[in-house]
């Protein structure tokens, strides 16, 4: 089944990938190993999972103001998610993506979806993010 969701392109860009969905917020600093892309917050539900190349769907970031630096470094190192979808604007994550674009001319699109649309995305859905903030969701058969 294919659906189309409309979001706010906080950091506009195009990307596609398989959804990695977190129910809980995550701090990218202390929560993400930028060399490997692994979620290393051992209290987090996704501890041990790899964000690289996935469309990372999380309610918002939290905690450290170093999270933007970690997103920037993961973009430089090639371990970043393909895109990030949140349910509210996360200024710290937006910053990491904007600085990456200024410094390296490449970035990670960030889209904010309304709560209901945000919650409709399931782990494993194939997502396409467009520069205008549209998100196309392909759910695997039987989902």
């Amino acid at each position: 089944m294919t659906r189309r969701l409309t979001g706010n392109p906080v950091v506009p860009g195009a990307a596609e990938g398989v959804a990695l969905v977190a129910a809980e917020p995550l701090s990218f600093w202390g929560g993400l190993n930028t060399a490997t892309g692994e979620i290393v917050d051992r209290r987090h539900e996704l501890s041990g999972r790899i964000v690289t190349g996935r469309v990372f769907v999380l309610p918002r970031g939290k905690g450290s103001s170093t999270a933007s630096a970690c997103l920037l470094e993961s973009i430089r190192a090639g371990t970043a998610p393909a895109a990030i979808i949140t349910s509210r604007i996360d200024p710290v994550l937006a910053l990491g993506a904007i600085v990456a674009d200024e410094l390296y001319g490449r970035s990670v699109p960030i889209v904010v979806l309304p709560e209901e649309a945000f919650r409709s995305i399931q782990d494993g859905d194939r997502l396409t993010v467009e520069p205008d903030g549209a998100v196309t969701v392909d759910s695997p058969d039987g989902a």
Partner: peptide, 29 residues
């Protein structure tokens, strides 16, 4: 760009700053 991403409608003055970005050592930083 950041103010636009955050949905702000204008900028304002601040009187002092404290830099966190000097803490993490990364190649990008």
């Amino acid at each position: 760009r950041w103010a636009q991403a955050c949905g702000a409608d204008e900028l304002m003055d601040v009187a002092q700053a404290h830099i966190d970005g000097c803490g993490l050592l990364s190649e990008a930083g």
